[in-house]
Design a protein around this nucleic acid. Structure first.
Length: 588
RNA sequence: GGGGUCGUAGUUCAGUCGGUUAGAACGCCGGCCUGUCACGCCGGAGGUCGCGAGUUCGAGUCUCGUCGGCCCCGCCA
């Protein structure tokens, strides 16, 4: 390579006019006018227009052969463009480089899709040729944003006196939680490492070790099904602090979010963030991650139906079930077909369906109107504060949380459908006072809602013996526009309480000893009170970037079925490798 | 594990009721063009209709199966 760049492709402007420069990059586009040839040369900084004139015949003939995505080096002189040819749309639009020398560093096959943001391409093709997709400006922008977010994270926590410490990837399989990715041990045939679902136990042990403020931007692995916002390997900002309570952790994180959003997005957010208890969130929004950018609150109208001619609801109301209603003024014109689609939506989520009624000119019409007594109608009017025309939707279920959840899903579904969400707004809030446990029908026991090291609220300790499901945890989630972006808790730091919780989780002393013995043992040597939190970094960047999918902020993501389309993962391995590991595939 | 949806040229898509030679735009190739910048004009090449069965005189179109992408439920301490 003879011509090494003196500038990058997004750099040149008026001030460089007259200078001899060299640019290196890819041919973004070429416009051959017969007489004059324009080449846009692109690198990650931008594009610059190169001009080839017919005067230099050899050079001109060379330039005619240039095609998209050839890698070139060009020497030339920066000159101001003619007034009418100035392009205000690009950074370097006032100037161009009059080429004097051209070096083709490499040619390129015709790419399977054009390297342009405005060209629509199916995602599987983009993933298969990820190196081409990554040349597109929008994806480059996302990864640069991700870089800035990571740097801002380090800057903030370093300044606050945190220490970044790496923890192992070859760890111990843990019960509870997600399915582990396993790594067979060659030196210990029949035994396995597990890739960490999170560095949870290690960071707690670092607290025992005295590193009172720890953070790490770290990869985590969970062998579960994928989603738009879930990948089997993902990145967390993992944080743990000693001698703290909830207030210390929450305010430290509020400071972090304020700094990050200002630094990376130029956005201002007010602190402290509002807090909502889990119970309030479920009652008002029907979810533990409410999007608070719009209203449509849930109303509990169970008592109204305790005495009603509508027997379906009366029965549910009378058996500790729940009947809820949401008022949608914007949906008052919905057709029978549109309402039926909502019904189908709720059924698909596992509900009985949705009942509706239209409130028009102070009259109840359609749907279940004929099953409402005059008394029911009056009660609903005052409970739902009905004034304007509206579509009122009801969901009822024997299980209170399921009913709330269905209504909450319906609330979000309709707000999206009716485009009632102000996407320019940023709403951050904490959800607190989560239940410590939930009963798993499948396993026939209580399981930890957060994780087994989460401390119960001290005021709820007595409940552990009498009504464990009512005990609340010292846990908190951070919600960003209806997305859970962080979750954490104050941990248990005493062996007796930890053993008690294990006991409720029916994790026997032997099993607990085998799985977590090292942690319990560490707790016997002066474990300080501690707590922490972890952010879903990919999800956070996705929201900051306004991306549709987590895949758009990860350089090399997997498809929905966990496949790497570019490199072809997962793949079969040489039988010799399996032999070394003493592993024999089971025929299924 | 379940449900939905999509699969036609290199790409994004159209393809009517099952019926002649499967079309368009962009891209690609060739020609023309000295101020374009998602250049323009003219011409051309390019198809295993994802794959496999079946129904039929005849299937891109209908049926079944299968593979793959995306979305949702379950799952995700």
């Amino acid at each position: 390579m003879q011509l090494k760049r003196t500038h990058h492709c997004g750099e040149l402007n008026r001030a460089h006019v007259g200078q001899k420069v060299v640019l290196n990059g890819w041919v973004d586009s070429w416009r051959d006018h017969g007489g004059v040839i324009f080449i846009d040369i692109r690198d990650r900084y931008g594009k610059t227009q190169i001009v080839f004139s017919p005067e230099n015949k050899t050079l001109y003939q060379q330039a005619r052969k240039l095609r998209s995505e050839y890698v070139i080096a060009v020497a030339g002189e920066v000159r101001r463009r003619p007034e009418q040819a100035i392009n205000p749309a690009i950074l370097t639009g006032e100037v161009e480089v009059a080429a004097t020398e051209l070096e083709v560093l490499n040619t390129s096959k015709t790419t399977p899709f054009e390297i342009k943001d405005f060209v629509n391409v199916s995602e599987d093709l983009r993933l298969r040729y990820r190196y081409l997709d990554l040349r597109r400006p929008s994806l480059q922008k996302h990864l640069l944003l991700r870089h800035r977010a990571a740097q801002a994270t380090r800057a903030y926590f370093n300044r606050q006196g945190f220490v970044e410490i790496e923890t192992p990837f070859l760890t111990k399989s843990t019960p509870e939680g997600a399915r582990d990715f396993l790594v067979p041990s060659r030196l210990h045939p029949g035994k396995f490492y597990a890739l960490p679902q999170s560095p949870q136990t290690y960071k707690q042990i670092l607290m025992v070790a005295g590193f009172d403020k720890y953070y790490q931007i770290v990869r985590c692995f969970r062998d579960e099904d994928l989603r738009r916002d879930r990948q089997p390997e993902f990145t967390q900002i993992d944080i743990e602090m000693t001698f703290v309570d909830e207030e210390d952790v929450l305010s430290m994180m509020e400071g972090f979010m304020q700094f990050l959003l200002a630094e990376v997005g130029g956005l201002e957010v007010k602190i402290p963030f509002p807090r909502l208890s889990y119970a309030e969130a479920m009652a008002k929004y029907g979810t533990d991650k409410p999007d608070t950018r719009f209203g449509y609150f849930l109303n509990n109208v169970t008592d109204v139906f305790l005495n009603s001619p509508f027997q379906v609801f009366q029965r549910i109301a009378g058996t500790k079930g729940y009947v809820g209603a949401v008022v949608f003024p914007e949906a008052v014109q919905f057709s029978r077909k549109q309402i039926e689609a909502l019904n189908a939506y709720v059924r698909q989520l596992g509900g009985h369906g949705v009942a509706h009624v239209k409130y028009l000119h102070n009259q109840w019409e359609g749907g279940i109107a004929k099953f409402l007594s005059a008394e029911n109608q009056r009660a609903l009017e005052s409970r739902l504060k009905l004034e304007e025309d509206a579509l009122v939707l009801f969901v009822a279920d024997e299980d209170v949380e399921r009913a709330q959840g269905l209504l909450g899903a319906l609330r979000l579904h309709l707000a999206e459908k009716l485009q009632l969400i102000d996407t320019s707004r940023i709403e951050l809030l904490w959800i607190v006072d989560f239940p410590l446990l939930e009963y798993s029908e499948e396993e026939g026991r209580y399981v930890a809602r957060h994780h087994p090291f989460t401390s119960p609220k001290l005021s709820d300790l007595a409940l552990l013996d009498t009504a464990p499901e009512k005990a609340r945890a010292r846990a908190y989630d951070l919600i960003f526009n209806g997305n859970e972006i962080a979750g954490g808790s104050i941990r248990i730091h005493r062996k007796d309480l930890q053993e008690k919780v294990f006991q409720i989780l029916r994790l026997g002393p032997q099993e607990a000893e085998q799985k977590f013995g090292f942690l319990l043992e560490a707790f016997e040597y002066g474990a300080p009170p501690h707590g922490g939190i972890a952010f879903g970094f990919d999800r956070l960047v996705m929201l900051l970037a306004g991306a549709e999918s987590i895949r758009d902020v990860i350089a090399f993501p997997k498809t929905a079925s966990g496949v790497g389309l570019m490199e072809g993962t997962p793949s079969e391995v040489d039988p010799k490798q399996l032999e070394e590991l003493k592993i024999k595939p089971v025929r299924t």
